[in-house]
Design a protein around this nucleic acid. Structure first.
Length: 301
DNA sequence: CGACTTTGACCAGCGC
DNA sequence: GCGCTGGTCAAAGTCG
């Protein structure tokens, strides 16, 4: 299914680090590698400098972050999955790739969550045994930030936290507090670079951004999360997830410590046409078209 | 008092 | 079949 993309990933002009990361990620699919061990993912690691810094900035209005990345759909960033991951750049392990189509473990839980919404209680837990659930599209953002929970314009309620294998940092689970909104997100820190926060959004908001939010986030994020179901996860040959990083050109707070490790990954020289194509690809999937503000093109200009 | 966080327990999928 | 791990629930605690 997403093999195409996996392949694509391998072809990326990764840096040494990247390569190793990727390799590690793909070979380290022990069991549930980790938070980001789903299917193959499409990576646009370094070299991708498509967005204007404002893009990253809109993320949460603050300037904690210096980098930003996105993963779409079932893929997760093998933050912890890649023990050898030199930097937090994500790669994806195809461990759950197979699951992508059919969905596997988490699907069921999510199913109950996303489908039944907030109504399900322990009850739902007991039932829905054989019931399988399709996975919601996911967007993983890697953000360099001091705070774990980044402001993205929506209100979230934390409903769980788990220690992550291979990582000293726990993973937090959040759910959109808006009723009927099935969106969930996971937040964890890269064990490689503690300064990087990996946020994975799952599902799409079916409501507008709370008015109380920062204009930035609200304006920019709302659309993306509210986009209609555009990801035919199953059998579409789509990348279960893809992600890209956006270097934050602003001095992320004077060479933030963590930045060091990520410097490599966020260090790009130019935005080649290839990347543009890639971006287009993503956009075509309709996943980012809303997320990506019209500012990126100006990068060229 | 309502909203949110913390935290232990539970459940299911997967690999061995 | 067993153990590990990820994901979720829900009671209790905290905060404004």
């Amino acid at each position: 299914m997403s093999e195409d993309f996996t392949d694509f990933i391998y072809r990326q002009p990764f840096q040494d680090d990247k390569r190793r990361t990727t390799a590690a990620a793909f070979t380290n699919s022990g069991s549930h590698s980790s938070a980001f061990d789903d299917h193959s993912s499409l990576l646009i690691n370094n070299n991708l400098q498509m967005f204007d810094p404002t893009f990253a900035e809109f993320l949460h209005g603050s300037n904690d972050h210096t980098s930003f990345s996105v993963a779409v759909d079932d893929q997760r960033i093998p933050a912890e999955a890649a023990p050898a991951t030199p930097n937090s750049s994500m790669s994806s392990s195809s461990a759950e790739a197979a699951a992508g189509d059919e969905e596997s473990n988490k699907g069921k839980k999510e199913a109950k969550e996303t489908l039944e919404d907030e109504s399900p209680k322990k009850d739902s837990k007991a039932k829905k045994k054989g019931e399988k659930k399709q996975r919601q599209p996911r967007f993983a953002f890697m953000t360099k930030s001091e705070v774990d929970h980044l402001e993205d314009g929506y209100r979230w309620r934390k409903y769980g936290q788990k220690a992550v294998k291979n990582s000293p940092y726990p993973r937090s689970y959040y759910r959109c507090t808006t009723q009927k909104c099935p969106v969930k997100k996971r937040v964890e820190r890269s064990y490689e670079d503690p300064s990087i926060v990996i946020t994975t959004y799952e599902g799409q908001h079916n409501h507008h951004v709370p008015a109380t939010l920062r204009g930035n986030a609200a304006a920019l994020f709302a659309p993306s999360m509210m986009a209609p179901p555009l990801i035919p996860l199953e059998g579409q040959g789509f990348p279960q997830e893809f992600l890209f990083q956006v270097p934050h050109l602003y001095g992320g707070g004077g060479g933030s410590g963590g930045g060091s490790g990520s410097n490599n990954m966020f260090h790009q020289q130019n935005f080649s046409s290839l990347h543009q194509q890639q971006l287009h690809h993503f956009v075509d999937y309709g996943l980012l078209q809303d997320i990506i503000p019209p500012v990126y093109p100006k990068e060229e200009a």
